[in-house]
Design a protein around this nucleic acid. Structure first.
Lengths: 260, 260
DNA sequence: CGGCTCTTTGACCTAGTTCAAAGCGCGTGG
DNA sequence: CCACGCGCTTTGAACTAGGTCAAAGAGCCG
């Protein structure tokens, strides 16, 4: 997939992409980012909590997850990253990265070194706005995520997760109706604050209701409106049509499924 | 309480306060913030989601809460604010505030208008760094909060909540061992993703174990190490000494309590 | 004093976790 | 090319932490 063919103007207006911003900066200014591109493979680490802050990374392709570790060693996945996303913003505060980042698949990143960063933020209006807007957006997303974690039922959580992924993919010009995710069920469960068994059961339940179709990590959305409805329905209404443990008796599977 | 007497140097190094930063900027530059101070009372609104972005607010005294509303009208409190905190950063993205802010008690804020903001970020290194660090810090806090919401038991959540408040108060030069909070049990429950009854029960349980002492909204911490231990203990260990519903039979109350 | 909101406490109940075991897909090495 | 092993996923059955419902107390203010 060639990203340069995407309608970036529209995207950069609705949700700023530093990647795009940088590309324009790179062309018009004397900034050289050519040596700062690197490729990583699945399970490789970009940086770990405690490491010296070296600058921001922009994910160019692939995907990654960030996680923090509690005092007792438990890990929590805070976010999944897709092309255009910014990595390492948590390092501004103490000049030390506060999160760990692992790649989920073969990916490439571009480093904006701290030195370049300072002058960019200072002198380049576009870049500065992009950065502030991107951080602002992250804070808003965090709020939504917190609400999701604290108040949503399992079905709502999974519906939100799928819809969010769909949104991500389509905003990058990919198909938002049919895609495959790069994280495991365990990752999803950890990120959404539920047990992996529950994730599995909700997927099965959604499939049984013909809202989605899942094979391994390939998903296709069959009824996006129903998903949106579940995601935005309060718990009392949602409860009526929910019985995770017992509604998957008459297995509906590969048969009526659109992906093969 | 006169904030100007606080040891701000130390604070601004460990965790940047835009308030302090602004004060120095105000003195050394030609910036006028004198007309931008306003006082609000409990339950008054600073701004609501959807309103035009006018700039950032710095809380000078008092306290506030921010909340977002889900599609079905449910509210979720995303954060509580104390003096020195920054309000309105969520407006950078779309030039519209994305959250609602209500004051919990009589408070005063200082508005940094958008016009001033731009030149400050552009030209004032201290301010720019303060802002970036503050936003970075918020993102880190959000991560911690998400982990808390998604993986912690009720006791862990409440322990974290109390410890966080304690940290906040002592970082502002107030007593971190004995303070009163300005939010209701319902607010705490909403923010921490639990039922208000559970909050009440955990408080009772902590009091019964002589970790804290609560009267209405006045708390004093009796055993901060034990609280820290609870907050950082994994669920398996924590479970052994937990039985919220039945361990408050022999009521221990005002008798052995340090606040009267 | 009456009415209000907030908080506590009790009793019950269920959504989702935990534990256990089997199934599946995929890469590796023989 | 098959067999084995390993990591991931699914499914079942039992259990429990915490939510929900209900009712009573407590503080506060006009």
């Amino acid at each position: 997939m060639n990203y340069s063919s995407l309608p970036f103007n529209r995207i950069s207006k609705s949700s700023p992409s530093l990647k795009v911003c940088l590309e324009s900066v790179e062309k018009s200014n004397n900034l050289k980012l050519t040596n700062s591109h690197r490729v990583f493979h699945a399970k490789q680490s970009l940086f770990s909590a405690g490491e010296q802050f070296e600058g921001l990374y922009i994910l160019r392709s692939g995907s990654a997850k960030s996680f923090i570790t509690s005092l007792d060693g438990e890990e929590h996945i805070t976010k999944f990253f897709y092309p255009g996303d910014l990595l390492g913003v948590d390092g501004f505060d103490r000049h030390v990265y506060m999160e760990n980042v692992l790649f989920l698949e073969t990916s490439s990143v571009c480093l904006v070194k701290e030195s370049d960063l300072n002058s960019l933020v200072k002198n380049n209006d576009d870049f500065r706005n992009c950065l502030l807007r991107s951080m602002s957006q992250s804070l808003i997303n965090d709020s939504a995520m917190m609400m999701c974690l604290s108040a949503y039922s399992s079905e709502q959580k999974v519906a939100c997760f799928i819809l969010e992924l769909s949104k991500r993919f389509s905003s990058h010009g990919l198909c938002g109706r049919e895609f495959s995710f790069s994280m495991t069920r365990t990752d999803i469960a950890n990120n959404m604050g539920m047990a992996l068994e529950t994730v599995s059961r909700v997927f099965a339940s959604f499939q049984q209701k013909e809202l989605i179709c899942v094979h391994n990590r390939q998903v296709s959305i069959l009824d996006i409106d129903a998903l949106r409805c579940i995601a935005s329905t309060d718990r009392f209404t949602a409860r009526e049509n929910t019985n995770l443990h017992f509604n998957n008796r008459n297995n509906i599977r590969q048969d009526n499924c659109c992906v093969k």
